[in-house]
């Protein structure tokens, strides 16, 4: 099956349409904006730091995404299987690859929209000081790439269950594992292992990768990592779709 931009776009548009068909999408974005603000100002001590950057804002993104991204992704496939529309979707001349990518892109665009709407944070630092806009741009790009990786995992989990809530929980668990693999506490427990293995485990972590980008270091390896994560989990999505679509 071949990639077809046109079909992918049609699937993406339909999925986006379905996100905004109910007020849930708007409530969701509002919640995201409020929480990201609350985290930056109260937990991140945005003012007290006295720095004209958005590190207080970006530092909480992985934790926010841990719950927000699974919620966006859970509806990608589970309801299609629940309602039987998957039979319609898979017998239209769309192609599985295009359907998987189209749906994922819809979720990613949705997440991107929520992220773009945090622009008042940037306006705030720009008003208060003279921030390095390159670092902020890198932060936004890194954050969006990380969101994509969360969503790709969520897409796969959503194909594995007909129940959205189950898909949500599994996604949180898997994403959590990929996050904490970079936390010192976890890495310390591998103290017995050779350094190369510890580096590998740390390298799997969203946190390690994201921190680097959020500090303004756009390393090709980190970017590749996020794209590879997306490709891998979307591939898993397709494999599981093939197995589960008719069940």
């Amino acid at each position: 099956m071949t990639f077809n931009m046109n079909m992918t776009t049609i699937v993406m548009q339909r999925q986006l349409h379905s996100y905004f068909a109910t007020p849930i999408a708007y409530v969701f974005i509002l919640m995201f904006l409020v929480l990201s603000g609350v985290f930056s100002f109260y937990l991140g001590h945005f003012y007290e730091k006295g720095q004209a950057d958005l590190s207080a804002f970006f530092n909480f993104h992985p934790w926010l995404y841990l719950f927000f991204m699974p919620a966006i992704a859970m509806g990608l496939w589970a309801p299609e299987r629940q309602m039987g529309t998957i039979e319609l979707l898979m017998t239209l001349p769309i192609g599985q690859t295009n359907a998987v990518i189209g749906k994922f892109l819809a979720a990613w665009v949705f997440a991107g929209l929520a992220l773009v709407l945090t622009f008042p944070m940037w306006l705030t630092v720009a008003y208060l000081g003279d921030p390095d806009n390159g670092v902020i741009a890198a932060g936004y790009i890194g954050s969006w790439l990380m969101a994509g990786s969360f969503l790709a995992i969520g897409s796969c989990m959503s194909v594995c269950s007909k129940n959205q809530i189950v898909a949500f929980i599994f996604t949180v668990v898997v994403c959590f594992i990929f996050m904490v693999s970079g936390v010192p506490m976890v890495l310390d427990s591998f103290a017995w292992a050779p350094q190369s293995m510890i580096d590998f485990i740390a390298g799997l972590s969203f946190l390690t990768r994201f921190d680097a980008i959020a500090r303004g270091v756009l390393d090709l390896r980190d970017i590749t990592y996020f794209f590879a994560m997306m490709a891998l989990w979307l591939y898993f999505t397709q494999v599981m779709l093939q197995r589960n679509k008719a069940k």
Partner: peptide, 15 residues
């Protein structure tokens, strides 16, 4: 070249 009505006529309910 095919048109298909699956059993139960599934369709996207929110549309």
């Amino acid at each position: 070249i095919m048109g298909y009505l699956p059993e139960g006529a599934p369709a996207y309910g929110e549309m």
